[in-house]
Write a protein that binds this DNA or RNA. Structure first.
Lengths: 343, 343
DNA sequence: CTGAAAGCGCTTACAG
DNA sequence: CTGAAAGCGCTTACAG
């Protein structure tokens, strides 16, 4: 491997001068500089990152910590959540010459994430992007205690102390519900996207409830079903709703896959969407396009981009600043399933 | 941050002894060792990876280099290719305390991948797992020239010099085709999974051709269509096939998404599967299960695992060894679409 | 504008 | 079994 010494020798200067020239960190005579860069180019010199990191205390790595990629969080069909997020992150860190260290929880959420803490203690990264639907504040707190910049992506910050970027799930749900109410629906069922311990789920659920309340509609327990990452949970929810004496006229699916389950149920029972059942969902994945589903965007690509941007900004900062909660705007994409669109 | 000096001071020994104890790299008196570990535990000591890497010349990072995650290669719907691969890799590197550096081509395949070469020159990783459907040998050669261990995953090695792990796509296609022939079909169409420049595509196509030939069936140009990552390419292929005077009685889709396109075509035109049209595919994703599709497994999870295992084995080696081409076994999962399964 | 020197936090011969 | 010292490849005061 070619080192700074090789360059210095070949260019007939000291290693300090090579360093100054390469990094532009001190003035170097034009001719000297030229000579140095000629050698650098010729020998394909690139400073050893470990050596550099040791003295600068920077690794130029940022770590993305997520749930296990094999977990339901990432693998439910038709969703490109993960690659969208990656893509967004990649676009910004690439420009700034950062690398991406990928790490995830190994045993579901049981493991006390010793892996991330190990990385922290080894100083393996300069900052972390954390994407955990049910992140406990402990890990974030521990990271921050050690001065490690953290940005939560795809989930809102639990308090004023941690930076986060996400869509406003409460708002989204409120809007979805209002949309249906605006179309004249009063019997509106809701499939909670997942366990209520997840902030996303809680937020979407509350947005739904508040929209009902604000419009003078009383919520009904039997119009609410907790779904999961499988299509079948949507199917199941629909079958429960339509077994009721007074079935809903509209359903809000907690996510697109669940909406597909509802559609499958409708198909199998002859219910017609949107005539017999108006349907609205979240995420606006390719599934929404495929199934002509009205859905609200949750732009993971943008979340990744803004998250990475914010993190990088943090890295450049000396002084602490109050944490930010960045909200990525989303829009309701109206398609055929809600009945708002003329055929 | 706590350093080895802190531990040494606190335990009343020299830093060498701490290092010996921590790494088990030289005998240390039991009582001394105990004292040292007590302090290590108490102070949460973990050696600084940059410092360690500088002297050991190891980073404990392995790099996974892939196409852009936003590209079609990863985002076509219903496919968990990427997360499967990650999961497999993660399982093995995690055990050996390696970290995963994720990097990808930025501008499609045009960029001459300077990013990976930069990482190489900075010595940012100990080895690379490369997953490029149309990898040019140049990049692999350059990596190897610099002594960087490389394993190609999800694609076969181009020559004897590079390690690779993949399924045997030729074999898979041969088997799929033979299966249909065994069911009495003679007019068998084939949707090539993608551009023929990709090895996967070429291999699957050749397997198809050879199976036909070996069974005395002449191939017909009009029974072959080049597909892509979209469902619609399957739809389109089917519509072309069934516009022929003598349409095929069976179709082999190059991948599950394409098969779904074929199914959609069948639905829209009233063709019944498998009665009017036997259908077989590759990949056996969740789509195959959902659409009751006979499909051949291409176990990315296993490919990731074996790839990582092989790479790690390479890292431990001093001497060069002849490259291996590991073939991950796959199986034909028979479902309703091919007509082999009694209803 | 340039160079000699110290030092980042480790590991690893080498001595004892 | 333990410690003093060199050195990994850089950056960064400090002198000149």
């Amino acid at each position: 491997m070619v080192t700074i010494k090789d360059i210095a020798r070949e260019a007939g200067v000291s290693i300090s001068t090579v360093s100054f020239a390469f990094n532009g960190t001190a003035p170097v005579a034009p001719e000297t500089k030229e000579r140095i860069f000629e050698v650098i180019k010729r020998l394909n010199y690139q400073p050893n990152s470990a050596a550099r990191g040791l003295v600068t205390r920077k690794t130029n790595n940022i770590c993305l910590f997520t749930p296990n990629p094999g977990s339901n969080f990432f693998t439910f069909s038709g969703n490109s959540t993960f690659t969208d997020l990656l893509q967004g992150i990649g676009e910004v860190i690439d420009q700034k010459d950062y690398n991406l260290l990928l790490s995830w929880e190994m045993h579901g959420n049981k493991a006390k994430t010793p892996k991330l803490l190990k990385l922290l203690r080894e100083r393996a990264m300069d900052g972390v992007l954390i994407c955990l639907p049910d992140h406990d504040s402990n890990i974030v707190a521990e990271l921050q205690e050690h001065g490690m910049p953290v940005v939560i992506v795809g989930s809102k910050g639990q308090n004023q102390l941690v930076n986060a970027v996400d869509v406003d799930n409460y708002e989204l749900a409120y809007r979805n519900t209002s949309h249906l109410i605006g179309l004249g629906h009063k019997r509106i069922a809701f499939i909670v996207p997942g366990p209520l311990e997840y902030l996303v789920c809680e937020d979407r659920y509350e947005g739904y409830l508040d929209a009902l309340t604000d419009n003078g509609i009383k919520m009904r327990e039997d119009y609410v079903h907790i779904g999961d990452f499988g299509e079948s949970s949507g199917y199941r929810a629909a079958s429960l709703f339509f077994a009721l004496k007074e079935p809903p006229t509209a359903v809000i699916a907690g996510r697109d896959v669940q909406a597909v389950g509802v559609i499958e149920y409708a198909r199998s029972t002859g219910l017609e969407i949107p005539r017999d059942l108006a349907l609205v969902s979240f995420e606006n994945t390719e599934l929404a396009a495929k199934y002509d589903l009205t859905s609200t965007t949750t732009n993971l690509h943008e979340i990744g981009k803004e998250g990475a941007r914010l993190l990088l900004k943090l890295l450049g900062r000396k002084k602490e600043r109050p944490a930010q909660n960045i909200v990525i705007p989303s829009e309701l994409v109206v398609r055929g399933s809600c009945g708002a669109k003329p055929k």
